[in-house]
Design a protein around this nucleic acid. Structure first.
Lengths: 189, 189
DNA sequence: CGTTTCGCAATACGACTGCATTGCAAAGGT
DNA sequence: ACCTTTGCAATGCAGTCGTATTGCGAAACG
């Protein structure tokens, strides 16, 4: 067998270029040619590693989710062992919000995928399963009187803050203030 | 001057067709030809009433916002004079959520526009100004200890519920339960 | 030292896009 | 009755899209 290359590295290179294009020109600007140009490679090479565009999109979406999970995990890791529930929640949610830099770019891509998934249900099937477990996890962190409804509300709040941040209707300060107000509501009886 | 036709009626006809296409095939499927076909007219006629595609999109977005405002207004009108603040808020937010039917279609279109606006800030400029006033209005309805931060949080919650509803991560029941939990939090000290 | 297999570039194809152009029918105004 | 203006259909054009095809250089194996 000839020329050994790291297939997965190439795929990540291409996926990174895709997300760069999507983040600053929108998902509808993601084409094989644009992605190839952004990655500095030929269209043929992109086709070599992704047989179809959908395959490439799916890989990129998975990469965004991976990066997001990593971002949360490292943020939480900085908290030490057994952090107080309120701090843990605030840290996780703040890490998930598109406040700046990479998180903002990822958020834009995720929002675009969300809109796409709202119309192509089978495309967003991968997004759905995590939410139920997340609600239960959050519910376990809330003080006693609150149930899964409040957990769902908190997650919805987070999602909405993300949308407002990306749309420019809220500044990062305003979003974090709103988040803290909600946590006050939940944790201070 | 020849043949008098109701310009605005034609534009609304075309915009309705656009929203139909966008609602069940996504915003990226909105093209002059598809919209014309959905409206049962020729491409030339669409071009006659909208000189450019962006003009057509802007008109359609304005129409969605109009319909939404009307939906809220009629829902609130059914409440009579001086309704209690909590009921007023619940009614307004429930009318805004994409729970079913037209509201769901409008929601899909709005979400698509949102994703588009996250990347083309000048396109979503029309969306932004209303939010600030809305926050203040909501803040005025909340009982005493709560400020604009809680109002922003409530609106973000609404937005997030909308996203979850469209994405299928929440059922209408779950969304309304979460909304009520939040209103409990705000109104029952 | 072939030979084979892989990595990748180039190009061609048909479908689609937004938009400009052209032409014609119909309907007032005079 | 003519003329002008408007409503609208048809068609053409240049560009982009995803994908299939083709071909060639390079690297490991026999």
């Amino acid at each position: 067998m000839p020329k050994i290359v790291d297939h997965d590295a190439r795929r990540r290179l291409i996926a990174d270029a895709l997300m760069k294009v999507a983040a600053d020109q929108g998902l509808e600007a993601v084409s094989l040619r644009h992605v190839a140009a952004a990655a500095g490679v030929s269209v043929g090479m992109v086709q070599h590693y992704f047989h179809t565009k959908d395959e490439m999109m799916a890989f990129a979406l998975a990469a965004v989710m991976d990066r997001t999970e990593t971002r949360i995990r490292t943020a939480v890791a900085g908290l030490g062992e057994n952090p107080p529930p309120r701090l843990l929640l605030r840290t996780m949610i703040a890490a998930l919000l598109p406040l700046s830099g990479t998180a903002r770019d990822d958020g834009r891509v995720a929002l675009a995928f969300l809109a796409y998934a709202a119309v192509r249900p089978e495309a967003g099937a991968g997004l759905r399963p995590g939410t139920g477990q997340l609600v239960e996890f959050v519910a376990g962190l809330l003080p006693d009187p609150h149930g899964v409804a409040s957990a769902g509300a908190l997650l919805a709040l987070m999602e909405g803050l993300g949308v407002y941040l990306l749309g420019g209707q809220m500044t990062p300060d305003q979003a974090l203030t709103a988040l803290d107000a909600q946590l006050d509501l939940l944790f201070l009886p």
